[in-house]
């Protein structure tokens, strides 16, 4: 069982040396040099400070902060015998404001109610599922805005995702926030952009850099509390109406990103500081508030199973959604 195939071992060893070669140039570069380049060409590197409690209390008086996150889980095997469940949560930092939950599901076995959606998305499975999750998150956020009129909404993940995956709903949320003056931000745990690498390659400083992601380049580069305000000129997002920053918010060497509506860009530094303040120093860099929301919205496997076992007929469950894989015990 623990026998390792010789070939597999060889392949992993080769992968390691290839990766080393690929990143060799980057690893050899002077940190100061890269930082200078970023400061000049990508965006100013500034150091931010945590807020004191007087500053933070301002948020309490002005409606609090709402954290928004979604979760999905799935049971079953290959198409079409599966069922996905989605749950979204908007939770206000003000304890008396009760949390807003919404739920939805999708299964290819029953699409009669979704015909309009399927038509719009040309029957693209992936797009439908993304729409459902993103849509539900925007829905709870919108309800939160209307119900509690918070100071700010903090979404888990990039705002651009909503723009792509559920455009109409997103525009509605955006308008509502702009009209009411509710600051809308997205906190990105895993940044997937490659702005710096592309610019490095373009400026012929590091010609292999084109394929490097920001996350690789920025790993360990920023100091605790440093942030990069990305210039609109280099970022790709402005056309969708966002402004972004990168920031190292904890002692972990990785960086996180943050999006804000470009119409609200005057709040960018303030929001960066808020995110920084709410992030424990020794953590992965995510604001605690989002972690709390995340843990409350999460649909665990156990929960999923018990819900379905309780409320679906045994026969339906077995026949449609229990895959051969689920029954495997070895």
């Amino acid at each position: 069982m623990y026998g390792l195939s010789e070939e597999l071992k060889e392949k992993v060893i080769r992968l390691n040396s290839n990766l080393c070669n690929k990143y060799n140039e980057l690893l050899k570069m002077d940190i100061g040099e890269i930082k200078d380049y970023i400061d000049e060409n990508i965006g100013e590197i500034v150091e931010i400070e945590k807020m004191n409690s007087a500053e933070i209390e301002k948020y309490l008086k002005n409606g609090g902060i709402i954290g928004v996150d979604g979760s999905k889980n799935r049971i079953g095997g290959a198409y079409p015998h599966y069922l996905e469940i989605y749950q979204g949560l908007a939770k206000s930092s003000i304890y008396d404001n009760s949390p807003i939950y919404k739920a939805d599901f999708y299964t290819p076995l029953y699409t009669e109610e979704e015909s309009e959606l399927i038509e719009r998305l040309n029957g693209n499975e992936e797009a439908i599922k993304n729409y459902k999750l993103a849509g539900i998150e925007v829905d709870v956020a919108l309800e939160g805005v209307k119900k509690y009129n918070p100071y700010a909404i903090m979404m888990d993940g990039s705002l651009i995702r909503y723009d792509i995956e559920c455009f109409e709903k997103w525009i509605e949320l955006r308008r509502e926030c702009e009209n009411r003056g509710v600051v809308l931000i997205g906190v990105i745990k895993d940044i997937k952009t490659s702005i710096i690498g592309e610019n490095l390659a373009k400026d012929k400083i590091l010609h292999t850099a084109e394929n490097l992601y920001d996350r690789e380049l920025l790993y360990g580069l920023l100091k605790y509390g440093e942030m990069i305000k990305i210039k609109d000129a280099v970022a790709k997002k402005p056309k969708e109406g966002f402004t972004s920053i990168f920031m190292r918010s904890s002692n972990a060497p990785s960086v996180i990103g943050m999006d804000i509506l470009d119409t609200q860009r005057e709040h960018i530094e303030e929001m960066a500081r808020l995110v920084f303040t709410l992030t424990p120093e020794n953590s992965r860099g995510v604001p605690l508030w989002l972690d709390i929301v995340d843990s409350e919205v999460k649909i665990s496997d156990k929960m999923m199973r018990s819900i379905l076992q309780t409320y679906l007929d045994r026969e339906i469950l077995e026949k449609l959604f229990i895959s051969e894989r689920d029954k495997r015990t070895l």
Binding site: M51, I56, S93, I94, T279, L288
Partner: peptide, 9 residues
């Protein structure tokens, strides 16, 4: 951080 959370309610 807990203190900050408390400050925002």
């Amino acid at each position: 951080v807990l203190e900050s959370l408390r400050a925002i309610g």
